[in-house]
Every structure is written in C-alpha cells, then in structure tokens.
Design a protein around this nucleic acid. Structure first.
Length: 234
DNA sequence: CCCTGATTCGC
DNA sequence: GCGAATCAGG
C-alpha cells in the first residue's frame, strides 16, 4: 500500500481526532502502526502526548542512539541557563481550571416543596455609574471571571449497561477469544474476551467446543447441540 | 505481558 | 519517503 492523497487525508483526520496509531493503521489497512506513526511525523502531525515523552526536560539523552554518533554535549550550556523553576511548558495544554457548575448548571436543582430558599446572591455593589453608562465597581466587587467552558471532546457513546465491561465487537483483536456469548441482537451480546489459545481464534476452553476430534465413521456419538432453534444455553 | 508514541536508520 | 526495529513509559 502506498500513501495516496486520500489515505493521507484519512490519516490526518483520524490522527487529529485522537485515534491511536494502531487504530488508524487497522482502519487504513495495509500499513503497520509504525508506518502510521512514521508518516504522521513526516507530515508534521506530531504533538499528542506520548506516554513516553511527557516532559520537556531532555535531562540526558532520552533515547540514547544505538550509535553514539556525534553526541552533542552542547546541551550542558542550555541546562545551566535553564532556570531552577521550570517555565510553563509551552507544548503542554493549559491546565484545566476547575469547572464551576454553579456558573452553568447542567441540571435544575432538585425540586422540593421545602422552603425554596433562594440564596440571596449578593449583587455586585455598584459604586457609581461611569461615563458611557458602565457600572463602576469597587475593587472587591469584581465579578468572578466566567469560567471557561469545560473542554469537550467527542467520545464514543457510552455502551449500554448490559455490555459494560463485556467484550464487544470493537474489542476483538487477534489475541482475544471471539467466542460469542449470547446472541447477536440481544442487548447483552458480547464475546468471550479471554486470551486466545495461541494460533486459534478462541481461548482454550472454547477451542474445546469449536474443535472436536474426528471420530471414525459410523461411530455413535451424542448429537451436537443445535446452534439455533434449540434452547439457549449460555 | 499488553499498550502507547518517538526515534533511528537501512533501504 | 518509507517503515521495521528499537526504545521507553504506562
């Protein structure tokens, strides 16, 4: 597979949407996770916090090259100049301020027939009216800054409670047992999810169910359970 | 072990 | 330019 314009666009989109390199590789097909990462970097798509590169302090060589090559000790000067208190990391996202729900109540307050004690919010004391009509406020009357909207991120719909913690179709990998549990269409349909018997699509237990020894012809054997139509067994 | 992204380097 | 191999952290 080659990096056609279309595939590059797909890569960009998925990368920016936060999909992992593995997911992107699987989605595109024909490429490895490494290929995706390599391409993303070549495209300048870097960013995204890496689990292994969280800070900006290079310390020593974070990844000592296999070949020491021309290891530049020039970083010593920079290190000396670096202030003891590290400046705010530019690359890191701004710290998320505590979201104050009071400013944007997501749900109405519980209704009770008790005393509807509406806390008399102390309105900002208006000292005077300035030119142009704006209200002057005392130094202590500054209204608290409106908290920024909480960061939002599109997240897959929460799975139903029935399959919470179960192995869904999307969870399947080559090393996860794909033995179906329940029946497709049912709310709690899921997959076994155990580690597979290496080389097989099922775990050891379900391999035992999926693969049965070939018996000689004519051998009496108990009728196998009907896959459909029979009583549902889980 | 599994996963993640970053980096290197031969092709 | 490409991506396998490798590294390093979770």
């Amino acid at each position: 597979m080659s990096w056609t314009d279309e595939r590059i666009d797909q890569l960009k989109g998925m990368w920016e949407r936060g999909l992992t390199a593995s997911q992107i590789a699987e989605e595109l097909g024909g490429v490895s996770r490494n290929a995706v990462i390599g391409k993303a970097h070549r495209l300048g798509l870097q960013s995204r916090p890496s689990p292994v590169k969280a800070n900006d302090a290079p310390k020593k060589a974070a990844v000592p090259p296999r070949k020491p090559a021309s290891a530049a000790p020039a970083t010593e000067v920079e290190a000396a100049q670096r202030p003891a208190t590290p400046a705010p990391v530019a690359e890191a996202p701004a710290p998320v301020r505590a979201f104050t729900p009071a400013a944007a109540p997501a749900a109405p307050a519980p209704v009770t027939d008790e005393a509807p004690v509406v806390a008399p919010k102390p309105q900002p004391r208006i000292v005077s009216v300035g030119p142009g009509g704006f209200l002057r406020q005392g130094p202590g009357d500054q209204q608290a800054p409106i908290p920024p909207a909480p960061p939002r991120r599109l997240v897959p719909a929460k799975p139903s409670a029935e399959i919470a913690g179960k192995t869904s179709l999307l969870d399947l990998t080559e090393r996860i047992c794909k033995w179906p549990m329940g029946h497709p269409g049912e709310p709690d349909f899921h997959f076994c999810g155990e580690a597979v018997n290496p080389g097989f699509p099922y775990c050891v237990e379900h391999c035992g169910r999926a693969y049965q020894a070939q018996l000689p012809r004519g051998t009496r054997r108990p009728p196998p359970p009907l896959p459909f139509g029979g009583p549902r067994v889980r």
